[in-house]
Simulated assay, not measured.
Amino acid sequence: MVDILGGGNAGVSATDLIKDVTEETFMQDVVDASMDVPVIVDFWAPWCGPCKTLGPMLEAAVTKAKGTVKMVKVNVDENQRLTAALAQQGLPLQSLPTVVAFYQGRPLDLFQGAQPQSEIDAFLKRIAEAAGSTADGGLSEALETAEQMLEDGAAEDAAQVFAAIIGEDDKNPAAYGGLARCHIALGDLDQAEAVLNGAPAEISAAPELEAAHAQIALSRQAENAGPVAELRATVEAAPENHQARFDLAQALHAAGETEAAVAELLELFRRDREWNEGAAKTQLFTIFDALKPNDPVVLNGRRKLSSLIFA
């Protein structure tokens, strides 16, 4: 992925970089496309004066970036259901223009209102750098090594590499997230939280840290999860028992049955999306955040959730 982004692509046409999207194409042109390259979404309306100024400036900056980012435009007047659904998921779309950068299926950063060209250029540069599109003196290779160690079960060794990377780059969100996940794997949730709490404020909302926070939350839930068989029997006997279904989802996730847990939460959301202040959707987002953005469970789960929201 870094190779694709690195240095841009001078051969990319403007039509490939900038396009209008609708509710029907948002998943493909934003969520799916952002798995490879950051996608800047310009939420605008024909009646919005600042939008008419910002739009061309943003397009110019994206074109100049030569493929390190892409841009889509959403006319909120023509896509009211899409806008409402995204606002329901937490995007602040009450005022226009709002520009949101998506990367690997999730919002990465945003700004609102008209901005000078210099600020727009800086925003795009920051997004491209966050996506790993610039040279980093070999830290990416070290991160890959540490990730492989962690995947192979060598959490202590991986923790040493992640810590060394932080020593070289104390604002590297992937290293902080990785170090926290090492402590999660070692069963030390308090130390994992301490690592995240010690990260610089400017990266505290980075996806890598949010993923680690989500994994900690799920690990703490797992400590109190009930028996799957008993909870499943309760749900089968009383399908409208929302608390039992929610508890079943937590127990399934604790047992490593993530896909089944997502299915139960989607069913709960379908039956009553407002139950317990939207607990089903909140838990789904926690699970999605804890997994890799391109995990099939995440991709399928997000699609099904979006279908239920739009239904």
Rank of each mutant, 00 (worst) to 15 (best):
E59D: 05
K66C: 07
V37K: 05
C182Y: 08
Q250K: 08
E23I: 09
R220L: 03
F26A: 06
A255L: 13
G138Y: 15
F246E: 13
S204V: 02
A205I: 11
D295A: 03
Q148I: 14
A146T: 10
L231V: 11
L124E: 03
C51S: 04
L179Q: 02
E119F: 08
Y103F: 15
V228T: 07
V297S: 02
E267Y: 06
V41R: 03
W47E: 02
E151H: 05
G55W: 07
E240N: 12
P173F: 06
F285E: 07
G198V: 14
S118D: 09
N300A: 05
V31Y: 13
P116L: 04
I309H: 01
L5K: 14
D272Y: 09
E267H: 04
A214Y: 07
L93E: 05
A217I: 06
A311C: 01
A244P: 02
A212K: 10
Q88W: 11
F310T: 08
G153C: 13
L308M: 05
N294W: 11
V235M: 13
T63K: 05
L54H: 07
L5C: 15
N224D: 01
G167L: 13
A211P: 11
F288D: 00
F310R: 04
L308P: 09
D272P: 07
A135E: 15
D157K: 08
T145E: 15
D188E: 15
E78Q: 12
L143M: 15
A45F: 03
R81K: 12
A85K: 12
W44Q: 05
K64V: 06
Q94A: 12
N79M: 00
F269R: 00
N197Q: 14
G167V: 10
E119T: 00
A14G: 07
A238Y: 04
P239S: 13
A279S: 00
N172C: 07
W275K: 06
H183Q: 14
M57D: 08
L248W: 01
R271T: 13
F269V: 04
H183K: 09
A263T: 07
D77R: 11
V62N: 00
A45Q: 01
V30N: 08
G256E: 14
E210H: 03
G256Q: 12
L91Q: 10
I165K: 10
G226S: 00
D77K: 11
K70E: 10
S306N: 04
T258W: 14
